[in-house]
Design a protein around this nucleic acid. Structure first.
Length: 741
DNA sequence: GCAGCCTGTCATTCC
DNA sequence: TCGGAATGACAGGCT
């Protein structure tokens, strides 16, 4: 079995190197840590966290992963892995998703490709990127876009050395090292030659692509080559001029585009950041804040249009939402219905802006509410009272004019109440206060309900969260930080919450134990319970040789053969002495006739039998029992710490999952609100149309202040007096309140 | 020299 | 009652 593991491990490593050299990206870590128990267990062995398996011994006897943490070979091992990652990085380069999306926004209105654009080929290759950006689930699709982008880059043959095969000295050295390492694998030097690869890729491109696409790809590759910088350490390429381009692009595209582009415009400023594209929540916050700002602008302009029209319409003058403003101004139904939610409505539905404002003058007048309460804004509380708005908190004034019904007020009312409860939940949970405050503002603007978060008991956590969210780290990371910081008080596992920016290179090169390891696991969303996502880090720095038999020690920890040749027997004895634990020294001093491994790991019965076979003194028996107790306790402590770390990591993962769920639910909620408001407007329009066509016996229209339409349960629409409608509306208002009590 | 981390060990509790 | 697992606390070594 061990030989099989060794064979597979070495074979996979070599195969991976070969694939990487020929441009195929193989992520071994993914396979090692994915849910593939057979392969994973073949390579790594079964998880030993909860068993008495001597995982230390097992690992210490394996090649590759079995290098002793204090062995000199460890350096070579890490060097090999680092070089492997560098080789992988040669055939791909990472561009932040942000640039891609922003470029697509720029390219769309142009409809053509400018050769002067440095990354034109990239953008045109990822033709689906535009749809991704405008899709409803931008946050999630962003990562998909990035992935696709990376594939496109690989298709383009974007390799690291940028200009005409001119290699830096580090590149040449690296290639030489790799070449020497892989010469026995049959990989010739031409594999590393950039110009050679470039030629091959050009030929491939010609074969693969045709026509215009080919032209784009060629231009893109050339543009890439002209604008790429090469990281001296990783060999990764990155665009040199993207940030400037992006700024110009985003500035060049004003908010005058079509609605789908509007969303792009909303997103593009977000995407110019350098934070992780996977941080949905951070982007969500930014999106919300930007939407807030844009909505404020839109509202300002819209209100100017609505309320400052020179038509002399009495509806459009002196309208104010200030609480103390007299309520006897007239305002159109359209205005009033949108007034409460207009901010978001306009915000999320840019097409609404195109609705004819002038039509508002033809709408029925209504009495605006001076109340900022939720119910007053959204009217009655269920659908049966759809066309039956209440007298808003008694502030409606018949003399002030007809009252506006709020057909979907009930729906919005409940929706808003749900949102507010969600808000409370978010605040109580210490959810991102920025997001919460933005939602709060949204609800304030919508419902007029004031949520004073400063008086909330969660203000402390909010402040903490805000400080973390203002940093470059993701909000999920901030939550992780909070979670981990609470655990770090234990101090036993050495778990810290800082330095979230650890990257793969550092993780691979790290020799430390938990901090680097745990962060990397968390960043890669791998199952921390397995504690095997970085097996070569798992045991690094540990010396779990306590319960190893001397033979195992000999095989695992002997110095290299060269050292043996030079060293004398004394040196070897010293080395073994140093490797022995205190209890082993004691056992040897007391001349215990069996190994500590037996003492510790034998079952009780066999252990007692073993003791009975020998004539041992009381001191020897005492020592043996101490050794057994300490040995078992040592393993127990190791398992305990491991379990504790697993628990922390699992909790962290759960927190991240919950945050993702919460962000998704918030997105869905916003979508629902948007559609709800659209429905509301449609129903209002229908209401006005129907009501406006109604005539009494004399052929005169009914007064909206005296009559209202009521939507009956059987689908019919009744015209009833306003007073009756108000009574019914009040009754329906009380019902949900009673229910809540 | 100090701080932080890792590991071993002890004491205690619980099963 | 014994054996052993689990765990908090502490100390020592290492970086």
């Amino acid at each position: 079995m061990l030989s099989l593991k060794k064979y597979l491990t070495e074979g996979l490593l070599q195969f991976t190197i070969l694939l990487s050299l020929i441009g195929v990206r193989v992520d071994v870590d993914t396979y090692l840590t994915s849910q593939l128990p057979p392969l994973r267990e073949i390579i790594l062995g079964p998880s030993s966290a909860y068993t008495q398996t001597q995982f230390h011994n097992l690992r210490n006897t394996l090649d590759g992963y079995g290098i002793h943490p204090k062995s000199i070979d460890l350096d070579n091992y890490f060097t090999a892995r680092r070089l492997l990652s560098q080789v992988r990085a040669l055939d791909r380069f990472q561009v932040p998703t942000t640039e891609v999306n922003a470029w697509l926004v720029h390219r769309d209105p142009e409809g053509s490709v400018s050769g002067s654009q440095p990354n034109s080929g990239l953008a045109l290759e990822s033709s689906s990127g535009l749809q991704d950006v405008t899709g409803p689930d931008n946050g999630v699709r962003e990562s998909e876009t990035e992935q696709g982008f990376g594939e496109d880059l690989e298709d383009l043959g974007a390799v690291a050395p940028p200009v005409s095969g001119d290699l830096t000295k580090e590149d040449i050295d690296l290639i030489d090292i790799l070449w020497r390492q892989d010469i026995d694998l049959g990989a010739g030097r031409e594999v590393f030659d950039y110009s050679h690869r470039q030629k091959e890729q050009d030929v491939e491109k010609e074969l693969r692509d045709g026509g215009e696409q080919d032209t784009w790809a060629g231009e893109g590759a050339e543009a890439l080559a002209r604008n790429l910088l090469v990281d001296g350490e990783t060999g990764e390429s990155f665009p040199a001029q993207f940030p400037a381009d992006i700024s110009s692009i985003t500035e060049a595209v004003p908010g005058e585009s079509e609605p789908p582009d509007l969303q792009n415009n909303l997103l593009s400023p977000l995407l110019t950041g350098t934070e992780s594209p996977f941080d949905l929540e951070q982007q969500w916050q930014d999106l919300m804040s930007i939407m807030e700002m844009q909505a404020m602008e839109v509202n300002t302009s819209a209100s100017e249009i609505l309320y400052n029209t020179p038509s002399g319409d009495p509806l459009s003058t002196n309208y104010s939402l200030a609480p103390n403003t007299p309520i006897n101004q007239n305002v159109s139904l359209h205005q009033a219905s949108l007034g409460g939610c207009g901010q978001d409505f306009l915000l999320f539905s840019p097409e609404v802006e195109s609705l004819p404002v002038a039509s508002s003058s033809t709408l029925l007048p209504l009495v605006p509410s001076n109340s900022t309460s939720l119910n007053s804004t959204f009217g009655s509380t269920n659908l049966t009272g759809l066309f039956f708005p209440p007298q808003l908190n008694g502030t409606a004034n018949d003399t002030a004019g007809p009252e506006l019904p709020d057909p979907l007020g009930g729906l919005l009312d409940e929706a808003m109440l749900d949102e507010i409860s969600l808000m409370d939940l978010a605040i109580e949970e210490g959810f991102n206060p920025v997001q919460a405050s933005q939602l709060e503002e949204e609800f304030d603007s919508d419902s007029g309900l004031s949520l004073d978060s400063s008086h909330s008991p969660s203000s402390l956590s909010s402040s903490e969260g805000s400080s973390s969210s203002s940093s470059s780290s993701s909000s999920s990371s901030s939550a992780s930080s909070s979670a981990s910081s609470s655990f770090s008080e234990e101090g036993a596992v050495g778990y810290s919450s800082d330095s979230e920016t650890l990257d793969l290179e550092e993780a691979e090169g790290a020799v430390g134990y938990q901090p680097e390891y745990s962060k990397f696991c968390r960043m890669s969303y791998q199952d921390p319970a397995q504690l095997s996502c970085l097996p070569y880090l798992e045991h690094v720095g540990h010396n779990h040789t306590y319960n190893m038999a001397p033979s195992a020690l000999d095989s695992a920890d002997l110095p290299p053969p060269s050292a043996l040749k030079k060293g004398s027997k004394e040196k070897q004895a010293d080395f073994l002495d140093k490797q022995m634990s205190r209890d082993e020294h004691r056992a040897r001093a007391m001349k215990i006739p069996f190994t500590n491994d037996k003492i510790i790991n034998l079952p009780v019965e066999e252990f007692n039998e073993l003791l009975s076979k020998y004539q041992l003194s009381e001191a020897q028996l005492s020592l043996i029992r101490d050794i057994r107790r300490r040995g078992k306790n040592k393993m127990a402590a190791q398992n305990c710490r491991k379990r504790k770390l697993d628990t922390i990591l699992n909790l962290e993962r759960d927190v991240e999952d919950l945050q993702r769920d919460k962000a998704r639910l918030l997105r869905e909620k916003v979508e629902f609100l948007r559609s709800l408001r659209q429905m509301k407007q449609k129903v209002q329009s229908l209401y006005q149309e129907v009501f406006g066509r109604l005539r009494d016996e004399n052929g005169r229209p009914y007064s909206p202040s005296q009559y209202a339409l009521q939507y009956a349960g059987d689908g019919s629409v009744l015209l009833i007096p306003r007073t009756m409608a108000d009574q019914q509306a009040r009754r329906q208002e009380r019902k949900p309140k009673d229910r809540r009590k």
